[in-house]
């Protein structure tokens, strides 16, 4: 592999990411799946890096789950999104950052649609006014929260307590990055590094001492794929996709997986248990699974947060072997006490 070829592509897909003054919107499902990730994001940017990130309790779902499940009309979902933008406008912010990949993809798609069909934007403004008496400005900058962490990766590295390095061998950990499909596959120019070779997570891993694994099914869906899982009869497709990815990455012997999507870490984590139950097969070292993390969790580990404070007891695939490999201190007895 020629890394310079990738670097050339990365240089062509850079987007402007402000560091500060964001209106932050949470995901519908992440707080259930990985409960500390969003809290940790706000803690890192606000307390560690003294940045201004505002959120409001009035924020609702963006409608993305329904939109990608084909159960909501496009104009309805646009009006929901228009309301989120109105909340941002009322709070006095111009930079909008979404925790959820599907929300980010949806916002990007809607802003692009309005750009090409301004009459539709006018119609949505009218709908919003009639239903809520709200008005909105479009965000000047739209970012996914992983874009912001990518932007801040070196500042995080400068405060790091641990590196993504095997403490016994000194070798960088081999990390699989999995990018949510709605991050840049629809609009490559809106993602750091584009759609084919995204750099957003790779940049973090490099900055924090690890090494990225490029494996054949890198671009493949995690197995969530909305209707693959939401429609019960399709769940065989869901686990088949996850299985395909693990079979493909296994020969590279990855130490861990990092993701930037709400569904991906959940499915990559949970289906490993199911595959083990069904086939008796595991993909990590010593009969263990490959631990799966959100990028906020990895940032938290690097910064020295307690793994149980980061909610890692909620993971299906045990994280302890990886914590031991890095040399992260933790108390086994406290795993379920928080």
């Amino acid at each position: 592999m020629n890394i310079n070829g990738k670097k050339k592509i990365w240089s062509e897909y850079q987007k402007e990411i402000p560091e500060d003054h964001y209106f932050y919107v949470r995901s519908c499902i992440r707080q259930n799946f990985f409960p500390a990730s969003e809290k940790l994001f706000l803690e890192i940017v606000r307390e560690r890096l003294s940045l201004d990130f505002f959120e409001t309790e009035h924020h609702t779902t963006c409608g993305g789950i329904a939109y990608h499940s084909d159960t909501i009309p496009q104009e309805t979902v646009m009006t929901i999104v228009a309301r989120q933008f109105a909340l941002m406008t009322e709070a006095g912010y111009k930079n909008y950052v979404a925790s959820c990949i599907t929300s980010f993809g949806l916002y990007t798609e809607i802003l692009d649609t309005w750009h090409h069909f301004p009459e539709l934007e006018s119609k949505i403004r009218d709908y919003l006014w009639k239903t809520t008496k709200r008005e909105f400005q479009k965000p000047e900058y739209l970012a996914h929260a992983s874009d912001v962490v990518y932007k801040l990766r070196n500042k995080i590295a400068s405060q790091a307590k641990y590196k993504l390095v095997n403490k016994d061998t000194g070798e960088p950990l081999k990390v699989v990055e999995h990018i949510g499909c709605h991050y840049s596959k629809m609009f490559p120019s809106k993602g750091v590094g584009g759609a084919e070779y995204p750099y957003v997570l790779t940049g973090m891993i490099e900055a924090w001492g690890g090494e990225i694994v490029d494996y054949p099914e890198r671009r493949h869906c995690c197995g969530f794929g909305f209707r693959q899982y939401l429609v019960q009869a399709n769940r065989g497709y869901s686990i088949s996709n996850t299985h395909k990815k693990f079979e493909s990455m296994a020969p590279f012997k990855p130490d861990m997986i990092i993701t930037n999507c709400p569904g991906c870490p959940y499915f990559l984590d949970r289906w490993q248990y199911v595959i083990k139950e069904m086939e008796g097969k595991t993909y990590g070292e010593n009969g263990e699974g490959i631990p799966v993390f959100t990028y906020e969790e990895v940032a938290g580990l690097v910064l020295g947060y307690d793994p149980w404070y980061l909610g890692m007891q909620m993971h299906q695939t045990a994280v302890e072997p990886l914590l031991d490999k890095i040399g992260i201190k933790y108390n086994k007895e406290e795993k379920y006490l928080l």
């Binding site: 592999m1 020629n2 050339k8 592509i9 584009g194 759609a195």
Partner: peptide, 13 residues
Amino acid sequence: AAKKEEYGYGIYN
């Protein structure tokens, strides 16, 4: 050919 990024010209030997 590198413009068709999915084919990996300039990346995969």
